[in-house]
Design a protein around this nucleic acid. Structure first.
Length: 291
DNA sequence: CGTTACACCTGAGGGC
DNA sequence: TGCCCTCAGGTGTAAC
């Protein structure tokens, strides 16, 4: 699901509904591995807290609370953060592409996949965290503490530089695609943007990481930052599950060059895009353009 | 270090 | 219609 651009799009839309508000009620589904902090404790820790800030680290969202503690959220593959407004309802309740039924309802009715609901002390909307596959995560972090999930992260992928990549790839025989997915290198890179940035750089995903030249590392990072930046501008990629918090589709799925385009002609040379599996992940590239 | 497999879940879509 | 299979923007672990 969401990679850096989708998480950032989510952060920007949902921040105004979180920051500055005081939590009055926390509603959850039953305990599961989704809750790294158990529901009961979560309710106790969050109730009465005001959210001071919402930041992003790679694919994680971090809500900083007024007592110095924070709430860490990960959207996993199918996680969605949204408010209960009508537009959210549209794509969350209806099959993609189905006709809009404006009279249907004006708030989202929480279903069995809505694992966390926050209510606040003002007249604004409630905020919901829904996740069909439950690969998402919720963790409360005490004031002054950190969590290995965060401390393991490399620099944010939006600040990726060839210098860092060159240094991090020396001595690594692993294929460069799999290395890009390592959150300890550049936090936030996922399957779509790994493939897209490799295409931009003309680098074949199977290449051994330590065989990349400095110039190739530079090019790859430039491509990566461009792809991520452009995707954020368009609201992310809506390919299978992801929709923006307001219920609308992102726009980047229309600009991707290789991801999920197996057998389609390369936009640059016409060669059929190839799909292989690397590190158990679907990988797409142009056999002609990517050396 | 590296690769592979598997585990955690649910739902959509294809083939028969 | 149902059944069985494969696939999906992620992450973590264990075995070799």
């Amino acid at each position: 699901m969401p990679e850096l651009p989708e998480v950032e799009t989510t952060r920007r839309s949902i921040a105004p509904h979180l920051v500055g508000r005081r939590i009055t009620q926390v509603t959850t589904t039953r305990a599961s591995y989704f809750f790294l902090t158990p529901p009961r404790e979560l309710e106790q820790r969050l109730t009465g807290r005001r959210i001071a800030q919402l930041t992003r680290r790679g694919k994680y969202l971090l809500a900083e609370l007024d007592d110095g503690s924070s709430l860490l959220l990960h959207l996993g593959m199918t996680g969605q953060l949204f408010t209960a407004s009508a537009r959210s309802v549209r794509l969350l309740n209806a099959t993609r592409g189905a006709a809009l039924q404006p009279e249907a309802q004006d708030t989202f009715a929480p279903d069995l996949h809505t694992h966390l609901i926050l209510d606040f002390d003002d007249a604004g909307e409630r905020v919901l965290f829904r996740d069909v596959r439950k690969f998402g995560k919720v963790l409360w972090i005490p004031a002054g503490k950190s969590d290995p999930r965060l401390s393991k992260l490399g620099v944010d992928a939006l600040t990726a530089s060839g210098d860092v990549l060159f240094e991090r790839t020396r001595g690594r025989k692993i294929n460069v695609k799999t290395l890009l997915l390592d959150q300890g290198v550049f936090a936030g890179v996922g399957n779509i943007y790994a493939d897209e940035s490799l295409f931009r750089a003309g680098v074949r995903p199977t290449r051994a990481a330590n065989k990349l030249s400095k110039k190739e590392c530079d090019k790859l990072c430039v491509g990566l930052v461009q792809v991520l930046t452009r995707s954020i501008e368009t609201g992310g990629s809506s390919i299978s599950d992801y929709v923006r918090p307001d219920g609308s589709d992102g726009g980047y799925q229309n600009e991707r060059k290789v991801y999920a385009r197996e057998h389609e002609p390369c936009s640059a040379c016409g060669t059929a895009i190839k799909r292989i599996v690397l590190g158990a992940r679907s990988t797409h590239y142009c056999p002609h353009c990517q050396k």
